[in-house]
Nucleic acid binder design. Structure first.
Lengths: 135, 135
DNA sequence: AGTAAAAGTTAACCATGGTAAACTTTGCCC
DNA sequence: GGGCAAAGTTTACCATGGTTAACTTTTACT
């Protein structure tokens, strides 16, 4: 039984901050995810070890290519799931967001493909994300 | 950020064992969930504290009323999700099972209601579960 | 009844992911 | 440029949930 992988939430948040603010600072990440700065520093160290981000001491965080790729994929899943839950299950925007956020880390690739097929859209083309996408 | 709640998996497994075998022993739970007996003993102690199960030392485990209620609800969610994923997303039985198992612990009540509405069935009436429902 | 195997528990350990409090570094402003 | 506040880090801690190894209890067989 695996534990929840919180690193995906951090990556997603960093991507959104880079895209929207141009930089991802510890404080901003902590505020968005509602965790302490100490938790962010810990997560950063773990992500650095996996080469998903770079950071010089006391400076902001930057996604590496592979980090950006992963983060983008998670955000993509989030978008697809949100749309799907709204269109197919008639969930409100908030409910869809909430459930997408919980599901994006756990669904199988096959399930994602099935949803893409059902939506019959390519959300990749309209990938512009807002900060509210985190929750 | 909360960690994964594994207690739901234990409750579900105990319910299935009670229903199918008439008893839930540590060894059986460990085998089904593929964890060590030590992990099961730990989980049992935690579930006892929450009054979801009873157990005398070295004996089998029994669900309390509230434990059975919770376990039944989780199993119900699992069934509903599995059916939904099969019917609505055309997932194979295995893929549906796998994703239902991951989703049953995290979806909101509103999402469950939406799925029930969409399926327009009352699975509660046909609640007879098999051991394969765990995964 | 004696004993060996199976079942269950305990102890010591590991990793993850969170915290508060104390500390260091940075940046800004007078 | 001195000093203070904000930002970032480190330290020491907590809980969960897993492990192996060693121990205890129960069961089952001859």
């Amino acid at each position: 039984m695996k534990h929840h992988d919180s690193s995906e939430m951090y990556l997603k948040t960093i991507l959104l901050l880079e895209n929207n603010e141009g930089h991802a600072h510890v404080k901003e990440i902590a505020d968005l995810l509602q965790v302490s700065k100490a938790s962010v520093t810990k997560a950063i160290n773990s992500l650095k070890k996996k080469d998903y981000i770079t950071q010089e001491n006391y400076g902001p965080v930057f996604l590496t290519d592979s980090g950006r790729e992963l983060a983008t994929h998670i955000l993509y899943k989030h978008k697809v799931l949100t749309k799907y839950l709204e269109l197919d299950l008639d969930l409100s925007a908030e409910e869809a967001e909430e459930n997408a956020c919980r599901m994006e880390h756990i669904i199988t690739d096959d399930m994602l493909s099935a949803i893409e097929k059902k939506l019959n859209i390519n959300i990749k083309d309209e990938m512009r994300f807002a900060l509210e996408d985190i929750k």
